[in-house]
């Protein structure tokens, strides 16, 4: 149909069609916890990929090793996670070729924020937590919102059970609102791994989008150690 040179579409329904609305987004669940120490950083994510009551797979790794000392945990809309991480990896390779060195954790953190804000009006629907060692070898954690707000922290929970896990970390790692004499106690690497594992066991009890198994990456100056702990699968 053509009206004053403007294309108009007729309003008709084809018989026999199933009318469904299309949404470009979908929540695929998953949770991330990251804890940084003086010379290590631990990042953990569950391995369940689901939408609604359907579990697609029980062994989807959501931790992306970007370099020898940086790991990105990404959950939310899985198709956006795939697109985002592919772009980050490509941009890191470009950096490596132009500057002849691997991107530092801080640089990756800044780039990730820019890449996400670049899609401010059609965001990547993802919850990101970036863990790594900084230039001094200290553990750092960066957390993001879907449009690229970036915040540096020492511990952070994100994803579908983020709101469930963060208060536990505030208590166990941050020692918030406690009568302490002097400094906040330091948390050892083994204690950090144990707490991260326990938070996931707890989250799997209450969050249906978290479960099956938890993949833990322990980053130290010697490299990245990968561990897996089984969670409840119902």
């Amino acid at each position: 149909m053509n009206f004053m040179g403007i294309e108009q579409f007729p309003d008709y329904k084809v018989p026999g069609t199933q009318h469904q609305d299309f949404s470009p987004y979908e929540s695929n669940g998953g949770s991330i916890v990251a804890i940084a120490g003086d010379d290590y950083v631990v990042i953990a994510a569950d391995t369940r990929l689901s939408s609604g009551y359907t579990i697609h797979t029980r062994k989807q790794n959501k931790l992306f090793q970007l370099s020898g000392k940086t790991v990105l945990g990404s959950t939310g809309c899985w198709c956006d996670t795939l697109a985002l991480t592919a772009l980050v990896k490509a941009r890191m390779q470009m950096y490596e070729h132009t500057h002849l060195k691997t991107m530092s954790t801080d640089a990756i953190a800044q780039m990730l924020s820019i890449i996400m804000y670049n899609k401010r009006f059609f965001p990547y629907y993802v919850s990101n937590v970036l863990a790594g060692l900084d230039n001094e070898g200290k553990g750092v954690v960066y957390s993001y919102d879907p449009i690229g707000h970036c915040e540096r922290a020492t511990y952070r929970a994100g994803g579908s059970a983020g709101a469930l896990l963060q208060p536990v970390l505030d208590n166990q790692i941050g020692f918030k609102n406690m009568q302490l004499d002097g400094e906040i106690p330091k948390v050892s690497k083994d204690r950090a791994v144990a707490i991260a594992t326990d938070t996931f066991i707890s989250a799997a009890e209450r969050d249906i989008y978290t479960g099956d198994a938890v993949c833990i990456n322990i980053i130290t100056k010697d490299g990245i150690e990968v561990k897996e702990v089984q969670l409840r699968k119902d």
């Binding site: 299309f22 470009p24 987004y25 979908e26 695929n28 990929l49 359907t54 697609h56 797979t57 062994k59 989807q60 809309c77 899985w78 198709c79 795939l82 697109a83």
Partner: peptide
């Protein structure tokens, strides 16, 4: 592997689409 209309993709030992998923 399995890919859907949004580009959501995953690999597994067994995959199904639609009713097959249930």
């Amino acid at each position: 592997g399995h890919v859907d209309l949004r580009g959501r993709a995953y690999e597994d030992d067994v995959v199904a689409t639609g009713f097959g998923k249930h």
